[in-house]
């Protein structure tokens, strides 16, 4: 009963847990880098530092505000682009890692058997 129970769980709920956990980790990385949000607001002013109202001001003030805002948008676009790139790299790394984990999970019993076979045949890797 032990073996049936263990293998039943390993390839049933245990496997589902790995998939669910992988999905949740990917979602967390996406949320952490807020890629969707950053893409939607790619050219928005950064922290709206110069978001003051320039209506009714002089021409010079208007141009100053315009310049500040353009600068703020540029800074924002750079910061967001870098963050998006960092997020995508992290995401890719995580996908590769989780795929390996899931494959190893499926193969664990076979890997154990493989190790026993290696022990029996006496093969050891050569380090030279």
């Amino acid at each position: 009963m032990f073996l049936v129970g263990l293998l039943g769980w390993w390839y049933g709920a245990g496997f589902s847990n790995r998939i669910a956990y992988s999905k949740s980790q990917l979602a967390n990385v996406l949320a952490m880098f807020s890629v969707g949000q950053l893409l939607r607001t790619l050219f928005a002013p950064f922290r709206q530092i110069s978001a003051g109202n320039s209506n009714g001001s002089s021409m010079a003030t208007f141009f100053q505000a315009f310049l500040d805002k353009t600068m703020s948008r540029f800074v924002g676009a750079v910061a967001r682009t870098l963050t998006i790139i960092a997020g995508l790299v992290s995401l890719l790394g995580l996908v590769i890692y989780r795929v390996i984990v899931v494959i190893l999970w499926v193969l664990t019993p076979l890997i154990a058997v493989g190790f026993i076979v290696l022990a029996i045949i006496g093969w050891v890797p050569s380090w030279q």
Binding site: G5, L6, W9, W10, A13, G14, N17, T108, P109, I111, A112, V113, F115, I116, L118, A119, I121, G122, W123, V124, P125, W127
Partner: peptide, 29 residues
């Protein structure tokens, strides 16, 4: 053991991997 060139290391590794299975079973179920 494997670094030392002893193939019994595979046996120990197999037992270790096999032990991981009931441990995970206990922790998650």
């Amino acid at each position: 053991l494997l670094i030392m060139g002893l193939s019994i290391g595979w046996g120990a590794l197999a037992v270790g991997v096999i032990l991981i299975m009931p441990i995970r079973w206990y922790q998650e179920d």
